[in-house]
């Protein structure tokens, strides 16, 4: 470690540190408490955390949560960010140990400008894929919301206990099947000799099979379905606590159903909707299996490019791509949330 520190190019290290702090702070912002460490400690003392839970349980909780945060979140991100500033063009050893290579911005500039040997000034191909991934993820999130909101509303306000349980089971059971298998199932469903084409041709609507995969319809369908539970449950939770009398009151005052939803139910369920949309967007943007399996030949998801870098053996470039992508998604989500006046704290409701 000391050898390494001596080799450090100081300005690079400073920039790297700033970047890392940015990640760390965005992660901290995501934490529901939004407090500093000392404030958190004061808070725990105030609520008599240790007195209430006993020393054993308290210690376990503190250690487990710290391990979770440090080992699962902070450390991997730290190493990934650190890695992204190394020069991957200098050959690494067989274990992908880049620690001896110099610090550089090359990986980041490559995302935007490419290798420089291309015809265009910008890295058009990757930026296009990046934009398309974001836009498609937004569309899929909206589609999932449109599909899930009525189901969630029905389960939360209209259906009786038994029906709700049955519906929940029907929703959850398919997710026992592995994500990749589900993607393949969609491929079979949408294939040129698949069920959908057979039905369409059999019923005489079409003469020849439609290539759903080439048109990316299979991919969008698969991605929309992949995370519906994460959309339904937060919305269901939020709407369930809405007093049914409020809906009846609005109805009694002459309101149409659309206005009841727009003015009464949706504002009330806003935290749930935000939570569901955020999760679905983040997971869709970061999905790999569905685009890989269901994507048409011309379609590329940004995660596929990232994977590609790792597969090609340039982990530093892959890290830079992954980190930039994560950062963009977080910034995008925070901006949208700001626009809809949702607090981060509300997501944890």
């Amino acid at each position: 470690m000391s050898d390494q520190l001596q080799n450090l190019d100081l300005p690079y290290f400073a920039i790297f540190l700033t970047f890392f702090l940015a990640v760390l702070s965005s992660l901290l912002v995501l934490a529901p408490t939004q407090r500093g460490i000392s404030a958190t400690w004061d808070y725990l003392k105030q609520v008599k955390f240790i007195e209430r839970n006993g020393i054993v349980v308290s210690t376990y909780i503190v250690i487990a949560v710290s391990l979770w945060v440090v080992v699962m979140i902070v450390a991997p991100q730290f190493f990934m960010v650190e890695l992204s500033f190394h020069d991957g063009t200098v050959a690494a050893d067989v274990n992908y140990d880049y620690s001896q290579t110099p610090y550089t911005f090359n990986n980041y500039s490559y995302v935007i400008f490419g290798s420089g040997s291309d015809d265009s000034y910008f890295n058009v191909l990757h930026l296009k894929v990046f934009l398309r991934t974001i836009i498609a993820s937004v569309c899929i999130t909206l589609l999932a919301f449109v599909l899930c909101y009525p189901i969630a509303y029905y389960m939360a306000q209209t259906a009786k206990g038994g029906t709700v349980r049955l519906l929940l089971i029907c929703l959850v059971l398919p997710f026992w099947v592995n994500e990749i298998l589900r993607a393949f199932a969609f491929r079979i469903l949408f294939g040129s000799s698949g069920v959908i084409n057979s039905v369409l041709i059999g019923s005489g609507i079409m003469d020849e099979p439609f290539d759903f995969i080439k048109a990316d319809i299979a991919m969008y369908a698969g991605l929309s379905y992949a995370y519906i539970l994460l959309m339904i449950f937060p919305i269901y939770n939020a709407i369930e606590s809405l007093d049914h009398n409020q809906i009846e009151a609005a109805r009694d005052l002459g309101s149409s159903w659309s206005r009841i939803h727009y003015r009464v139910v949706m504002p009330y369920a806003k935290p749930g909707i935000a939570s569901g949309c955020t999760m679905v967007f983040m997971l869709t943007a970061g999905a790999l299996a569905a685009p890989q399996i269901l994507g048409g030949p011309s379609s590329l998801w940004f995660t596929q490019i990232i994977t590609n870098w790792f597969n090609l053996g340039d982990w530093t470039r892959g890290s830079a791509y992954a980190f930039l992508f994560l950062l963009s998604c977080i910034v995008f989500v925070l901006t949208v949330m700001k626009y809809f006046k949702v607090n981060l704290g509300e997501l944890a409701k």
């Binding site: 007093d243 009846e248 009151a249 109805r251 009694d252 309101s255 504002p267």
Partner: peptide
């Protein structure tokens, strides 16, 4: 329907819109 009748109902728990 209740939205078309010339009646207005005041609920036991009032059901005011909190937002």
């Amino acid at each position: 329907g209740p939205n078309k009748r010339p009646t207005a109902l005041i609920f036991q728990n009032l059901a005011l819109f909190p937002l």
